[in-house]
Amino acid sequence: MQNKQTAAIGETAGHEKPVRRQWLRPDARPAALVLLATVALIVSMKLVNSDFGSLNQLTAILITSIFLVVASFGQGLVILTGGIDLSIGVVMGIGGMIIAGMTRGSDDMLVYALPTALVCCAGIGVINGTGVAVAKLPPFIMTLSSGTTFFGIGLALTAGSSQQPVAPALQKFMSGSWLGLPLPVWFLIVFAVLATLVQNGTAGGRKLYAMGSSPGAARVLGLPTTMLTIAVYGASGLCAGIAGILLAGYSSSATLDMGNALLMPTIAAVVIGGARVTGGAGIYLGTLAGALFLSTLSTVITILSLSQGLRSIIQGGIIIGALLLQSSRSAQRH
């Protein structure tokens, strides 16, 4: 509590431009808060249902959160630059469909199918990025339209569902375990570390922050904003592709519409994690926390056995609550 007060004062004093050596710490606070809220959710559920919160339960939540965790990294990068990617759901479906369509139930083609799927998905991202950076189309519309278009192309080519199962190796990966932990959880840990490094530990990542907080200044500084933008959307496509491949492996088959339900949650995860939609703020740890929070929340709501209407009301209410909680500092500015 004490800390929060001083931080608020510090921020007010710093006004719009936070002091340089402090840039990580205020950013990390929403992440910590959201993680705390996640733990609180699990603990409070344990009071209702004693089976809840077991190791099994936690790994189940982690495994099912992996798609959101991966896809929202891409969304987070795009939002960091002040954009948004609405094609993520479609790209996920396309990634899964390519894997299923090329492997046709055997592992032989997997070495070709994986790169093909990832290149195609990243390619859609690059098209998005080009539209945004070169043709100057608003990201919202560019990605929405390309999503619609590629969904149509996918439908025309496949009629909407893979006729063959995905490679057994992928299915085994999603259900196997190593050292007592499921493989997807290992994947999640490695991915989270890499993503944090990329977003918050590299020069490229720092350039994105500069670009997001002030595109004009970034250009004056000589940052290659066009290339960076294209790269960011490409990365988002790539992440969506990976998420789609994982989802196909998890459910051992793919449909074109299987990613649609994940689009909104990727945005929610990023924003709950402390990012600003206008760009330039938020760290991957926050996005990760947001994704885990949303997954836990949906698990809790499932266990409570409520009607869908009440589920939605609670879910939406908690999202707003989380926003209120973490931005109580910014409210003090007024």
């Binding site: 929610a268 924003v271 939609v277 879910q315 999202i319 209120l324 500015r333 007024h334």
Partner: peptide, 18 residues
């Protein structure tokens, strides 16, 4: 309160649908 409009209205969208 100065909350982010995109995030808030995702929340209110879900609540309203509920």
């Amino acid at each position: 309160l100065g909350l982010q409009s995109l995030a808030v209205t995702i929340g209110s969208l879900i609540v309203c649908q509920g």
